[in-house]
């Protein structure tokens, strides 16, 4: 479907901090608007959903339309109360899912 995603999450935070997460995944996000050399429409093929969970509980998601640029970039916030694991998922039109996990620790 797409190349490996890159997600920027701080390594450790103070409990209760609201942090910013930046995510990027390679994907051409074929909108369905383009035509090939013979004038035939190129079919739509995009990542249409992104979700972020912390310790299995989803806290943020995005329904993505073809107007989102290729190599979709998403930046969003989360409040971290305890150490744990983030799970990020990207789903495309074919139903394929790419998953990426990242741990976060609390500053001691």
């Amino acid at each position: 479907m797409a190349a490996k995603p890159r997600v920027k999450v701080p390594k450790s935070v103070a409990a209760g901090d609201v942090i910013t997460i930046k995510s990027l995944i390679s994907h051409k996000m074929e909108s369905g608007q383009r035509k090939d050399g013979d004038g035939n429409p190129i079919p739509r093929d995009i990542i249409n959903h992104f979700a972020a969970a912390f310790d299995g509980e989803e806290f943020f998601s995005v329904d993505i339309d073809p107007a989102v640029s290729a190599n979709p970039y998403l930046e969003f916030s989360v409040r971290v109360d305890e150490a744990g694991t983030f799970t990020f998922t990207w789903t495309d039109d074919a139903g394929e899912v790419i998953t990426h996990e990242q741990d976060i620790a609390l500053k001691s």
């Binding site: 909108s31 912390f54 107007a67 979709p72 969003f76 916030s77 409040r79």
Partner: peptide, 12 residues
């Protein structure tokens, strides 16, 4: 849990 209702992306 989002903490803040803010986000950004890039669009066509």
């Amino acid at each position: 849990r989002s903490g803040e209702a803010k986000a950004s992306t890039r669009m066509r």
